[in-house]
Write a protein that binds this DNA or RNA. Structure first.
Length: 1019
RNA sequence: GGGCCCAUAGCUUAGUUUGGCUGGAGCACCCGGCUGAUAACCGGGAGGUCGUCGGUUCAAAUCCGACUGGGCCCA
């Protein structure tokens, strides 16, 4: 492979897309069916189009010109399939990347990436073969084991890829970077050599978190991921003082880890703290810090002595277990400031091998360490009582032994947070171990300084959670005693000199071998090599460690390009412009990126960091595999669709914890995504019916509704642009929601007569042009957010027919101004809609349904003032409220007589007035409309096409009959009745007959579909 | 023990940066209307101690302090 050669992006091999299994066939059967919007069917059509024509690969090709936008995909750990919590960050990444691509940025890089190394992958393979220890793995064969790790990482990556594609997250999945690839490893080695040469990488012996199952140390940021509530023993033990002036006196010592007692080498007190000796009922005497007395001894037990901690120092005591350890015999009391009285007795048992403070104190006092556990955390023969038992399992046995010997003072349990292995869930222990460290504590100031220049979303993370963590940064324990990882490229010669190898060429040189293209830089291969010491020339052995996999991913921005071994777009001086991940990465990738950027390049790693909260389960708790309730995102996507899922997440405040279920997601999405889809479907039905061509040129309509729509469209486009320029899509989502609402519930509702041609062909053409232009423009502006619906709209409305890649909305670029804004017009429309609400409220108070026309709505004062909408304002208002006229009263005019009118007053002055009753003629028209509506309802129930003729018989009497007679022709036309018969005779009861009563008059009607042979078109 | 975030109607939430109209909206509920795109839509109703307490102010959901509850992180 020659990674420097230009290569076409691709979305991967086998199955680039997964088509929804149980959804309707992609293409609509006939044109009239397009009137329905079904998200899953639309997405199937769009996925098929993308796959057929290669749209995504085209969209991913970086333009030759154009500003650079730096991005790196945070590589998912390939040890398990994605869960719902991973969906949100992939949406957030995709939205921003689509936007930048549409704007013509050269995005560096759109490579997919997979974090292939590490314990997580190893554990999967161990489970598969029932391997329970490192010994088992070595028996199984390290080479075979690693080969399986490699193929499993690829298997899992494929699952992620499929989910991502279904979601519409476009990356170059065909050329991913993988942390296990030789080129990647070489870049990692290069970086380690840099750190080594700067003295930031060295070996130490420290107390570290250790997983007895994985048989390796962990880093503090790994431990941070595994704290959990747990129940542990809470025991108080007596340590008898030897040769004391009070012969029966004992020290009281409290611990939650009885298993560490065999390793006890010292006891620590605090010098300046007062201690008391009290006599118990049975005559024994115990020493305890005065401040802890109430918690440990009965209130009435008399105090027989008082002394300060320093007076106890140097006293000898009998250890809890008399073992032939490295320092048998006497133990003594020492003083140290780490002792507190917050929970214990103020007298602390010190086991130097099992605690950081213990280790420090033990080293100072020169007592060494005593670690009676093997690498799997089991007791060795050094403690015969519990030999062979896992450390925690020894607790009850040790406790029982103490009790038998009268050393147990009190026993119980305590609930507290305790660290567990974040990968395999075993209880961790702290123990003194050898490890290689990145000395991050020496560069804290750099980490803090560079972090200050990062734009965090949400902003509080900078100085809050993340900033705080940086100031406390501890040295990074980098090495793991494992198999499947980047081998630590450090060799020790017999004299103890360390040689760090920074490239394959150097490795060849120092080993005297050749490193060919087939070289696989993993344990089995590398462990065989002997490297000549750079200092003394003696052959050395490799330090048998692999790297913390978080180091691999932190190296991604440069290692993905095989920097510095190949030319590429990586610029050591340029941070990434944008990354987006979940909040858990503050201790993971965010941190390791920053550490490597600061130590290698002395700059921040990223300029903007968008962070999502956790996806929570229905109980509002963090989703986790262990709790079981982590929905499969692929199923979720099939259930609700990708765009609805995207919309559901984008509508939430994703910076906080998010509770989401498929049902709620679909509901949340329907309001906007569904409504938009139906508007498009409505438009298509009209356009096809009337054979109106799509409109791509900006129209210049005269009508206020159209001018208003275009102004709103541009406002929405600008809001999306502003929002995405600022990397935070929340404002964009709100703007889209508002626009779709206006489009559907005001523009379309008020424009319907025009679309039906009731206002003449010119008005229809104007409305069509406005809506056609608006929908295609809007499709381009929402393409980053809703790539499927945008594509479908763009194709369908623009009559592009899903034919070729050139026609894709995702190649159409970002729209510049779509129209001129007219804020005055938008405000006037806002006010007008206010008067509509007022008019409706008046109708309600008058008790006159909207169907029955009223003579006029009279407006006063401000409401009567001329509007920027001009004369059309009155028509909109009159139509919406079904009144014959809008009458604007002059200044200072009074409202008409209250008996015949309902009047809305504000501050005592009239605003609007409506007659209480219709005129007889208007009432009759209302009846006719009512009947028309009910007949239409019947037609709908019978499932008739809108133009299918029927025979209608209406039975009515008196004034109703007369009124209907006068309007018979219009009514017949309305309901496509051929003929419409009126009769005074009552109709017989039957399944085709419906009887109604409205406004005190009775009426019945029968609707009979005519033979199928009837004319297909409207007369 | 420490840090960060959150708390508004049964549920989801806008408003909090920069104090100021009667705290908006959606879902669900009740009443009514409308309906040849829509699981729609429109009007009205009911539902809020804006977590609690205190402070600042002419004025606090908004600013300050304490507390309670929840989430996440650290020890």
């Amino acid at each position: 492979m020659d990674p420097a050669a230009p290569r076409a992006p691709s979305l991967g091999g086998r199955r680039a897309f997964i088509l929804p299994a149980a959804s309707p066939p992609p293409m609509v059967e006939e044109e009239s069916e397009a009137a329905a919007f079904r998200p899953l069917a639309v997405e199937a059509t769009v996925l098929d189009y993308w796959q057929r024509t290669g749209v995504p690969a085209r969209a991913l090709i970086a333009p030759a010109e154009g500003p650079t936008f730096r991005f790196t995909e945070g590589p998912p750990t390939a040890n398990g399939p994605p869960h719902l919590g991973h969906v949100i960050t992939r949406i957030l990444k995709d939205v921003q990347l689509r936007y930048r691509r549409q704007r013509g940025y050269r995005v560096v890089s759109l490579q997919a990436g997979w974090d292939c190394h590490g314990l997580g992958v190893e554990i999967e393979i161990e489970k598969r073969h029932g391997l329970r220890s490192r010994h088992d793995i070595e028996g199984y064969g390290v080479e075979r084991f690693c080969a399986e790790c490699r193929s499993d990482a690829l298997r899992v990556a494929a699952l992620w890829e499929a989910m991502s594609l279904r979601l519409g997250y476009w990356l170059d999945y065909g050329h991913p970077y993988r942390t296990m690839d030789a080129a990647y490893v070489e870049s990692v080695w290069w970086s380690l050599r840099q750190l080594f040469d700067r003295g930031l990488l060295d070996k130490g012996h420290y107390v570290l978190p250790y997983c007895p199952r994985c048989e390796t140390t962990l880093s503090s940021h790994e431990v941070a991921q595994g704290y959990r509530e747990a129940t542990d023993p809470s025991v108080t033990v007596v340590f008898p003082l030897e040769e004391d002036r009070r012969p029966t006196r004992s020290l009281l010592v409290w611990t939650t880890t009885p298993w560490t007692l065999p390793a006890n080498l010292l006891v620590a007190v605090r010098s300046e703290l007062p201690y008391v000796t009290v006599r118990l009922a049975d005559g024994r005497e115990v020493v305890v810090a005065e401040a802890a007395r109430a918690r440990f001894v009965p209130e009435d037990a008399p105090v027989v002595a008082r002394e300060l901690g320093r007076e106890l120092v140097g006293r000898a005591y009998l250890p809890p277990f008399d073992l032939p350890g490295p320092t048998p015999g006497r133990r003594r009391v020492v003083a140290d400031d780490f002792v507190t009285v917050d929970e214990g007795t103020g007298i602390v048992h010190v086991a130097p091998s099992f605690g950081p403070d213990d280790y420090r104190v033990g080293a100072r006092e020169g007592v060494g360490v005593f670690d009676p556990l093997d690498s799997r955390g089991r007791f060795t023969e050094q403690v015969p009582l519990v030999a062979g038992r896992p450390f925690k399992a020894a607790d009850p046995i040790l406790e029982e032994d103490l009790a038998r010997r009268g050393r147990l003072y009190r026993s119980g349990t305590v609930r507290h947070t305790y660290p567990f292995c974040w990968r395999c869930d075993s209880a961790l222990l702290y123990r003194a171990m050898d490890s290689w460290f990145v000395r991050t504590s020496r560069v804290t100031d750099r980490l803090v300084r560079h972090n200050r220049s990062v734009t965090w979303i949400p902003a509080h993370l900078r100085d809050g959670r993340f900033g705080n963590f940086l100031t406390e940064a501890k040295d990074w324990a980098l090495s793991r005693s494992r198999y499947w990882g980047t081998p630590l490229p450090i060799w020790l010669c017999p004299a103890g000199h360390a040689t760090c190898v920074g490239s394959f060429a150097e490795l060849a040189e120092l080993t005297g071998t050749t490193v060919g293209p087939e070289f696989d830089p993993h344990r089995v291969t590398v462990d065989r090599l002997q490297v000549r010491c750079r200092v003394c020339g003696a052959p050395g052995r490799r330090e048998p460690y692999t790297l913390d996999a978080w180091y691999d991913s932190g190296a991604a921005p440069f290692a993905q390009f095989h920097y510095p071994f190949e030319p590429g777009p990586f610029d050591p001086s340029a941070p990434l412009d944008y990354i987006a991940e979940g909040i858990d990465q503050t201790r993971g990738w965010y941190y390791t990126l920053l550490v490597l950027a600061a130590t290698l390049f002395d700059r921040p790693a990223y300029r903007t960091c968008l962070t999502s909260g956790h996806v929570l389960d229905e109980g509002g708790r963090k989703m986790s595999k262990s709790r079981g309730a982590a929905p499969d995102p692929s199923r979720f996507l099939e259930e609700v669709g990708a765009d609805p899922a995207r919309w559901a997440f984008l509508s939430l405040d994703f910076t906080e914890g998010m509770r989401i279920t498929p049902g709620e997601a679909a509901k949340a999405a329907h309001r906007t995504v569904g409504t938009l889809g139906h508007v498009v479907a409505f438009h298509l039905a009209n356009a096809r019916e009337d054979r109106l061509p799509p409109v791509a040129e900006r129209p210049t309509p005269s009508g206020v509704l159209d001018r208003w729509l275009l102004s709103r469209l541009e406002g929405t486009r600008a809001a999306i642009e502003r929002s995405l320029e600022g990397f935070d899509p929340r404002e964009a989502a709100a703007a889209v929601r508002g626009f779709v609402d206006d489009l559907s519930t005001w523009y379309l509702r008020r424009s319907r007569p025009r679309f039906w041609g009731e206002s003449g062909p010119e008005a229809r053409a104007e409305a069509h042009a406005s809506l056609s232009y608006t929908l295609t423009g809007f499709a381009r502006a929402i393409a980053p957010l809703l790539p499927f619906v945008a594509e479908w709209t763009y194709q369908e409305v623009g009559e592009r027919r899903f034919r070729d890649a050139d026609a894709s909305v995702h190649l159409a670029g970002w729209p510049s101004a779509l129209a001129d804004r007219d804020p005055e017009l938008e405000q006037a429309m806002e006010r007008l809609r206010g008067w509509v609400e007022l008019g409706r409220a008046l109708r309600q108070r008058a008790g006159v349904k909207s169907r029955i026309p009223l003579a006029e709505l009279r407006l006063f004062g401000e409401a009567a003032a001329p509007s920027a909408l001009g004369a059309e304002a009155d028509r909109l208002l009159a139509d919406e409220l079904n009144v014959r006229a809008i009458v604007r009263a002059g200044p200072g005019a009074e409202a008409p007589d209250d008996a015949a009118w309902v009047v809305e007053r504000r501050d005592g002055r009239p605003v609007a007035a409506l007659p209480r009753t219709p005129t007889p003629e208007l009432l009759e028209e209302g009846w006719s409309r009512e009947l028309g509506r009910r007949l239409q309802q019947r037609r709908k129930e019978l499932g008739l096409r809108y133009n299918e003729p029927v025979r209608v018989v209406v039975s009515a009497t008196g004034p109703l009959l007369k009124a209907l007679g006068a309007r018979r022709e219009a009514l017949a036309r309305q309901v496509v009745a051929e003929p419409l018969e009126l009769t005074e005779e009552p109709l017989p009861e039957g399944p085709t007959v419906r009887a109604w009563e409205f406004e005190g008059v009775r009426c019945a009607a029968q609707v009979i579909p005519r033979a199928a042979a009837a004319a297909p078109d409207r007369p």
